[in-house]
C-alpha cells in the first residue's frame, strides 16, 4: 500500500479537512456579521442615499433590496444597504464554500462517488442563484 492511501495518512487528511471546514464556517459568519453591522451603522450615520429610505411607520419597507448588478457601484459609494447586502451575500455563500471544500476533501480521499454527490449538491446551490 502506498503512503497516500494508508489509513493513518487518510485520517490525517480528514482531520485537516475538518479544520478547514470549521474555519471556513467561522470566518464566513464573522466577516458577514462585521459587514452587516458596519452597513447598518453607515446607513444611520449618513444621509440616506436615494432609493435607500428605510421602513416607514408600519414597518413596511420603502426600499427595495439593492440589485446585484449595482452592488459594486453602491459599495464604492459607501451605501449602507449595499454593505449590508454584501454581508448577507457572504453569509449565504458560506455554506456553499463549505460544500466546495468538502468536494476537494473527498477528492483527497480519492472518493470519486462522493466527489460526484458533492458536485451535484454544489450544482443545485449554483442553480439557486440563477433562478431567483
Amino acid at each position: 500500500m502506498s503512503d497516500d492511501t494508508s489509513p493513518g495518512s487518510q485520517e490525517r487528511k480528514v482531520r485537516a479537512l475538518e479544520r478547514v471546514v470549521s474555519q471556513v464556517l467561522r470566518l464566513g459568519v464573522l466577516t458577514s456579521f462585521v459587514l452587516v453591522v458596519a452597513g447598518t451603522l453607515m446607513t444611520f450615520l449618513q444621509a440616506p442615499p436615494p432609493g435607500a429610505e428605510p421602513a416607514n411607520a408600519n414597518g413596511t419597507i420603502l426600499t427595495a433590496a439593492p440589485a446585484l448588478s449595482n452592488l459594486p457601484r453602491d459599495l464604492a459609494r459607501f451605501s449602507g444597504p449595499a454593505w449590508i447586502a454584501l454581508g448577507l451575500l457572504v453569509l449565504i455563500l458560506t455554506p456553499v464554500m463549505r460544500v466546495a471544500v468538502s468536494a476537494v476533501g473527498f477528492a483527497f480521499q480519492k472518493d470519486r462517488l462522493y466527489v460526484g454527490i458533492t458536485l451535484v449538491v454544489l450544482a443545485v446551490l449554483i442553480a439557486s442563484f440563477l433562478m431567483g
Binding site: G39, T40, A65, P81, I84, S128
Partner: peptide
C-alpha cells in the same frame, strides 16, 4: 439564493 435574487431579502429587515 432564490430569495436574494428575487429581492425578498431586504437589508433593512435582514440586518
Amino acid at each position: 439564493g432564490v430569495y436574494f435574487l428575487r429581492g425578498d431579502i431586504v437589508p433593512f429587515i435582514a440586518a
